[in-house]
Amino acid sequence: SAEDNLGPLPENWEMAYTENGEVYFIDHNTKTTSWLDPRCLNKQQK
């Protein structure tokens, strides 16, 4: 699965689903949400 390739979410991040079944990500560090997987963003920065 995609999660196996990317590994676990960063600390204090949570994956959630909208009512429509779309995946989004919650950053409890900054109390924000994102459509972008933080694991993908980390890979792009390196």
Rank of each mutant, 00 (worst) to 15 (best):
H28K: 09
P10F: 03
K31A: 07
N5M: 08
K31D: 03
A2H: 10
Y24F: 12
N29D: 12
P10A: 03
P10M: 03
K31S: 08
E19M: 13
N42G: 14
R39Y: 01
G21Q: 14
W13M: 11
R39Q: 02
T18A: 11
D27H: 08
G21K: 15
N12S: 08
K46E: 09
T30S: 11
T33I: 03
K43T: 15
H28D: 03
Q44P: 07
Y17A: 13
C40F: 13
E3I: 14
S34H: 06
I26A: 03
S34R: 02
S34M: 02
N20G: 13
T30A: 08
I26E: 03
E19T: 11
R39D: 00
T18P: 02
D27G: 00
N12V: 02
L36D: 07
Y17E: 15
E11Q: 11
F25A: 01
L36H: 12
E14A: 08
H28I: 05
G7S: 10
E19W: 06
D4N: 15
Y24R: 01
T33A: 04
H28N: 10
R39A: 02
P38T: 01
V23P: 15
E22N: 03
K31F: 06
L41Q: 14
Y24M: 03
R39K: 03
D37W: 01
P38G: 00
G7E: 09
G21D: 10
E14P: 00
A16V: 06
V23F: 05
V23Y: 12
T32I: 13
F25C: 00
S34E: 02
R39T: 03
L6A: 12
K31T: 05
D37K: 03
V23C: 14
T18F: 04
C40E: 15
W13S: 04
W13P: 01
D27T: 02
R39F: 00
A2S: 13
N20A: 13
E19L: 10
A16P: 00
I26K: 05
T32C: 12
E11H: 14
L36E: 08
K46S: 09
T18R: 05
E22D: 08
S1V: 04
S34I: 00
D4H: 13
Y17D: 05
L9F: 07
E22R: 06
Q44N: 15
N5S: 14
N29W: 09
G21Y: 06
G7L: 09
D37F: 03
T30E: 06
I26W: 03
T32K: 02
P38W: 00
W35C: 04
E19Q: 12
N5A: 10
L9N: 01
T18Y: 03
W35T: 04
E22M: 05
H28F: 03
D4G: 12
D4F: 11
R39S: 03
D37Q: 03
